[in-house]
Amino acid sequence: MASEHDNGGRGGTMRGPEQRPAVEARGLSFAFGRRPVLRDLVLSVQPGTAFGMLGANGSGKTTLVRLLAGLLKPDSGDVRVLGNPPGPGFSDRIGYMPQLNALYMSLTVRENVEFFARMCGVKDRQARTAAVDSVLELVELADRGRDRITSLSGGMRQRVSLAVALVHTPPVLLLDEPTVGLDPELRATFWKHFGRMTREGTTILISSHTMDDASHCDRLGFLRDGRFIAQGTPDELRSTTGVASASLEDAFLHLVRSGSLDGAPSS
């Protein structure tokens, strides 16, 4: 099993074994009414890592992202992002992309991104303009800046939503299914950028249910019934099947069917 600071050969140059986790959850439990969603969940993500949270629909991915973003309060357990409990005090250090696009539909692409940059404390007009230009370039929407959100396709809206999360260059990104609706070419471009960001020290947590996303992550956590049934690098998780040619999907199904945390890689 790989060490905690090994991220599968991508990035990690700025990290050392003594570093404090960028994102940490201990004994995290949360229920909607009487329905438990997360149970005694443990998570530790080192700085500069792309951590993929994988699981079926209803496995608790979005709830976990919202807890990490400070939008929900845990029933028990502790959440730390950059050493602090998530909340308004330092939320300019988090970039959050919800599953729902959450954009102002009658505003233009540029107006949306600029508004959130201002909310995140980018006060200087010139700096803000430069940040918006740069992030729109990144999501390949520089030529659509003046278009209203209502005139964009679903995939384009998704890209604007990502731009909003990135515009203030936060050290931690919480992305809830960011690649849904993107074509393969753009998905590859996104992952190229995510890879560059992690190399530069950004910590990225991504929820997804596609194995394509999973294969790009440095570390993965398979979420089932409100807890991680396994955590590790893609290679570690594949190796649990005992089959050399196993895919991550095989690994996920194997771990789900074995129904036990015993023997599975874990952080």
Partner: peptide, 14 residues
């Protein structure tokens, strides 16, 4: 309902 208020709350806005 469009989720923008939630998004605002993951900024330092009070």
């Amino acid at each position: 309902s469009q989720g923008t208020l939630e998004r605002l709350y993951v900024t330092p806005v009070g």
